[in-house]
Design a binder for these strands. Structure first.
Lengths: 220, 220
DNA sequence: CGCTGTGAATGTATTCACAGCG
DNA sequence: CGCTGTGAATACATTCACAGCG
């Protein structure tokens, strides 16, 4: 699995694939939406239609974690949403820092979807004296040297890496040493981490290249 | 395939999977780097080490497109880079517009990695009168109503959607009608498109939830 | 009867292992 | 001899299809 790099974790002796976990996130969003619309019950077929998959996929995905439906009826929207929320670990707040106070960091600091999903940005780090001391959305930009202190005091568990490519590895090493366990990397670099760390990559140009490949072969 | 949504395209009657295409992008970056370091020849094993995969994977991926190596020697770095560049359609410039002049749009307009990879941003659209008329990195923010004209005149083929979720579907429909064939969607919405269109999604909170799932199950 | 939950079947991706060329 | 290119084998993900519960 490239571009992801998680590889699947264990539950009750079973391997849950990243594919399943991603889909659970999608189901969760849809259930949330249905709940807001006042829908009380949904069948796997109806949810599949919304998710762009098929009903067996949904039932199989859920079956790894328990049995949540009623035969002949379907799933109670609110209850299933709550279950998936718990499965994904979203029944609590996760504290996040941004590493890199560039444009992308700035954009993400203002991306309030994070809060809605239970992610709280509690720190922004950079090494540029021009940036340090600025306050973005109520969060002060601090020197990377302060990261050990902030991570410890604020019990930070996740970091989003939005540094330039050349700085990313060193920043991850320092944040890792400070105790951070999960990294979402936007820097266009392959990062090395030790075994216990969770790492996902988002590479915008790789996504664009997937489009150009498809468009080009379609026409040439 | 969720979160992606391409599904693989055809070549010489063979289906090339998105996984393979993604990896080609990775190989391409690494080869580029090796070339800059003056490395002339690389084996599949050495490249695999850098890419975080294994040598058979690399040879298999390449074999879908031709035979590029020399037995007993390996691959000529520059030549292979050039081949992959061609395969991915990167041997020319692709014109791109940004739909949405919010923070993320602003960040991406300044993300000069695009240019290095042959993507040229030729337009930015919004509907907010405050935004329209601003000039970002030499590109004027224009009203979405102008998109038909710009897409036609500038021969735009790709769009990056960075609107709020609620606006994304309408914007895609209009850009599609204007002739755009490939979309990279950052809006947290499942988008509907007709058959010929290429669409990839990047959902930051879904990536974060992959991390929280893994961290949570690891500990509880 | 309608729908879930799940083993079995299928389809797809990855890895093995080796023949064969340079 | 070293490494590629590739069929065969394996591992994994998805879909089928149906027994069984509400």
């Amino acid at each position: 699995m490239i571009g992801g790099g998680l590889g699947g974790s264990e539950l009750r002796g079973q391997k849950i694939s990243d594919y399943t976990v991603r889909r659970l996130s999608v189901y969760y969003r849809l259930l949330d939406e249905l709940e807001q619309q006042g829908v009380e019950v949904v069948s796997s077929a109806a949810l599949a239609e919304l998710a762009g998959t098929n009903s067996a996929q949904i039932r199989k995905d859920l079956s790894y974690f328990g049995t949540f439906g009623k035969r002949g009826r379907g799933y109670r929207v609110a209850a299933l949403a709550k279950e998936i929320k718990k499965i994904l670990g979203l029944d609590r707040t996760w504290r996040v820092v941004l590493a890199g106070a560039g444009n992308l960091g700035h954009a993400l600091s203002m991306y309030h979807d994070f809060e809605k999903h239970g992610f709280s940005i509690v720190g922004i780090f950079d090494i540029d004296p021009e940036k340090i001391g600025q306050v973005w959305e109520g969060i002060r930009v601090r020197h990377l040297d302060d990261c050990e202190q902030v991570v410890r005091e604020e019990k930070v568990e996740l970091a989003i890496i939005v540094t330039p490519g050349g700085a990313a590895q060193e920043v991850v090493d320092r944040l890792r040493a400070a105790g951070i366990q999960g990294f979402l990397n936007f820097a266009p670099r392959k990062l090395r981490t030790d075994g216990d760390v969770q790492l996902r990559n988002v590479d915008i140009t790789i996504e664009l290249e997937g489009l150009t490949y498809a468009l080009q072969t379609g026409r040439s």
